[in-house]
C-alpha cells in the first residue's frame, strides 16, 4: 500500500515540477504570433476597391477574422478565396459579390483632353495614383493604379476609362498543357515515330 502511495506521490511531485517549468516557459518564451488579421490582409489583393462592402482591404480582413464569408473579393478571385480557405481551414466557396465578377487586371485611363480638372477622382483614389490639381489636367500613374475603378463614378464628365492591361511578351506566361483527359484514346492516333 505504501508503495502505491509512494508512487502516486512521486508522480504528483514530478507533475508539479514539470507543470511549473512548462508554465514558466510558456510565459518566459512566449512568441507573439502573427495576428490572424495581418495574415488575412497579406492575402488580399490590396486594391482597396470596396467591392466586398468594406472600406478597404484591412477592414475586410478584420471582418473575415470576425466570421464574415471569405468569398467577397472579386479582384482577388478564386485564387484568393483558395488561399484564405487554406489559411482559415474552411471550405473554399465560389465567388459571391453581388454581380461583380472576377475581371482581368485593369488600369484607369483619363481621356486627358476631356478632363475638366475637378479633382474629384483624386479624392476618390485610395492609393493616390492620380496626379493633378484644380483646373489642371489629371492623369493616372498607371504603375500605381490598382484598377479598383473608384475614380470612375465621381467623374462629372465621364472621362475615365477602365482598360484591361494588355499582355506583353514580358508579362506573357506559358499555358498549362491540356493534359491526358483530352486524348483518352490517343494510342490509335499516335503518329509513328521513325528513326532519324
Amino acid at each position: 500500500m505504501t508503495a502505491v502511495l509512494l508512487a502516486i506521490g512521486t508522480l504528483l511531485i514530478f507533475a508539479l515540477i514539470f507543470g511549473g517549468i512548462l508554465g514558466y516557459a510558456s510565459i518566459r518564451f512566449h512568441v507573439e504570433g502573427d495576428p490572424i488579421v495581418d495574415q488575412i490582409d497579406a492575402l488580399l489583393p490590396q486594391t482597396q476597391c470596396g467591392q466586398c462592402g468594406h472600406p478597404g482591404c484591412r477592414p475586410y480582413a478584420e471582418a473575415i477574422a470576425n466570421g464574415e464569408e471569405i468569398n467577397r473579393c472579386p479582384p482577388g478571385g478564386q485564387a484568393t478565396i483558395q488561399a484564405l480557405a487554406d489559411l482559415l481551414d474552411v471550405e473554399a466557396l465560389p465567388l459571391d459579390s453581388d454581380g461583380a465578377e472576377e475581371q482581368p487586371k485593369r488600369v484607369a485611363i483619363i481621356r486627358e483632353d476631356e478632363c475638366i480638372g475637378c479633382t474629384k477622382c483624386i479624392q476618390a483614389c485610395p492609393v493616390d495614383a492620380i496626379l493633378g490639381a484644380a483646373k489642371q489636367m489629371h492623369t493616372v500613374i498607371a504603375d500605381e493604379c490598382t484598377g479598383c475603378d473608384l475614380c470612375v463614378d465621381p467623374c462629372p464628365v465621364d472621362c475615365i476609362d477602365m482598360e484591361e492591361i494588355a499582355v506583353t511578351s514580358k508579362t506573357w506566361g506559358w499555358e498549362l498543357p491540356t493534359g491526358v483527359a483530352a486524348n483518352i484514346i490517343a494510342t490509335d492516333k499516335t503518329p509513328k515515330v521513325e528513326a532519324y
Binding site: 490582409d41 488580399l44 489583393p45 490590396q46 486594391t47 482597396q48 478597404g56 482591404c57 485564387a79 485610395p126 492609393v127 493616390d128 495614383a129 500605381e144 490598382t146 508579362t171 506573357w172 506566361g173 506559358w174 499555358e175 498549362l176 498543357p177
Partner: peptide, 24 residues
C-alpha cells in the same frame, strides 16, 4: 514553365499589393 510564370505573376501581384497597401 506554366508554374514558373504563374508564380512570377503571383510574386509581382504580391509586390504590387504591398506597394498599394503602403500607399493606402
Amino acid at each position: 514553365r506554366h508554374s514558373k510564370s504563374t508564380i512570377r505573376e503571383a510574386r509581382e501581384a504580391a509586390v504590387k499589393a504591398d506597394h498599394a497597401k503602403v500607399r493606402f
